Amino acid sequence: MRMAVVGIHGGWSSEALADAVGLATGERILVDLDQARLDLPGGTGARPSLVCPDQHGRPVDLCALDALCIKKVAKGYAPQMIDRLEMLRVPAARGVRCFSEPERILRLVDRLACTVTLANAGMPLPPTTITEDPAQALDAVRAYGRAVLKPLFTSKARGMALLDAEALDAAELLRALQGFQAQNPVMYIQQALDLRGQDLGVCFLGGEYLGTYARRKEPGSSTTEGGWSTSTASGGRYAPFDPPLEIIDLARRAGEAFGLSFTCVDVALTADGPFIFEVSAFGGFRGLMAARGIDVAAAFTAHALRELAR
């Protein structure tokens, strides 16, 4: 059984998963798509190859493996993640089992694709507007009062900005929107929620509930005034949390819209009820370990091997 981890060389969660897979299979293979080469030779029946270097720099043809555990496809969120997932569809089509399937992860990389999938599944989302028209964007920010501008490719609140329609006049708001649009042609605008100091990561493996952690803002932190973000990149800390069954069921339904092997569903508990922010194919490993002591890498590996044994 040859099973590789697709991840980032030196990345904490990628290395942890590679360690777990290596321990279970007797061969540790961690490949990074930074130097991937996809060859699609012409001719009927020609065999494609997708070659990436492993942790020792040795070339590995992913199309010749039995399975792939996809942990990370890039160091940061960017449109090229879509291209790399498209390349991973080639070994998947050749019969290499993927945990999770690249086609399913594709629905999560772009924030808009994730939001549309959740909306179509009837999930409770924060009020959200997507537009390329600055005038429409200005109307949305005024209607929301306080709005968060979110890049379509980002994680841990990087690149996000809060606009307060009561604190800025129309000209200032328009300038802020135009500045955001200079880097983000499609503007994703969401009403700012009062998270009351925390939001949740509710995690599932193979559709089964694994555990929940909270991202909790330290009291007195001024990095995200107004409580609109608890990201660990802006001062949030992981903490254990035991949600009620109805929150677990809500998060499960959100995750089922994507059908991933492992997923983390971001849930906000507000005075107006629970909201789903997003579903992640890549997060959750560190949060569950730090808050709950759950070794997701070992559990993920065991799940993949059980599925392959079927």
Rank of each mutant, 00 (worst) to 15 (best):
Q136H: 09
I29P: 00
A182E: 14
A165L: 07
A4V: 11
S280H: 09
P53Q: 08
V202P: 01
I8S: 01
R104C: 09
T154R: 02
A271E: 15
T224M: 11
R107I: 00
G227S: 14
V202R: 10
G259Q: 09
H9M: 03
L288I: 07
E278H: 04
M289H: 14
E172A: 15
P185K: 13
A298K: 12
M1S: 13
G197S: 06
A302P: 01
K217Y: 00
T224L: 04
R58M: 08
L200F: 04
S49V: 04
R94Q: 15
G273Q: 10
F204Q: 07
G259F: 07
S221V: 03
R89T: 14
V148F: 05
I8Q: 10
L195V: 01
R94Y: 08
L193F: 06
V141Y: 08
K156A: 15
S234W: 11
P48H: 10
R175Q: 13
R196H: 14
Q191L: 02
C98Q: 07
G7I: 04
L33E: 07
G206T: 07
A251I: 01
Y213M: 14
P48G: 12
V96N: 04
V141L: 09
L205W: 06
C264S: 15
G179Y: 01
E225I: 10
G42K: 04
V186T: 15
P79C: 03
A135C: 02
D169C: 08
L68S: 05
A121E: 05
G227C: 02
P219N: 09
V73F: 02
T44M: 12
L200E: 01
G10A: 06
D54P: 00
M1T: 13
A143E: 13
L17D: 01
C63N: 13
Q190G: 03
L163T: 01
A143I: 00
V90S: 02
T129N: 00
P79H: 02
V202G: 06
I70A: 03
V31M: 09
I276V: 15
R142Q: 15
G201Q: 04
F262K: 01
R216Q: 15
L23T: 14
D169I: 05
S221Y: 04
G284W: 06
E132C: 11
N184W: 00
D32C: 14
T131G: 03
P219A: 11
P243R: 11
A233M: 11
R286W: 01
Q181D: 03
P59I: 08
G11Y: 07
A290M: 07
D242Q: 14
L162I: 03
V267E: 11
E27L: 09
G57I: 07
D34K: 14
L17R: 02
M1Y: 07
P102M: 12
H56C: 03
E132G: 13
C98M: 07
S14L: 10
A92M: 05
Q190R: 02
L288Y: 05
P127H: 11
Y238E: 09
L173R: 12
R158W: 06
R253I: 03
A135F: 03
Q190T: 06
G207A: 06
A20P: 10
G45S: 05
L106T: 05
A157R: 02
L174H: 11
Q80M: 12
E103K: 12
E27S: 12
M1H: 13
A4T: 10
F282A: 15
L88Y: 09
C114Q: 08
F180K: 06
V60L: 03
P79D: 02
G207R: 08
E256G: 02
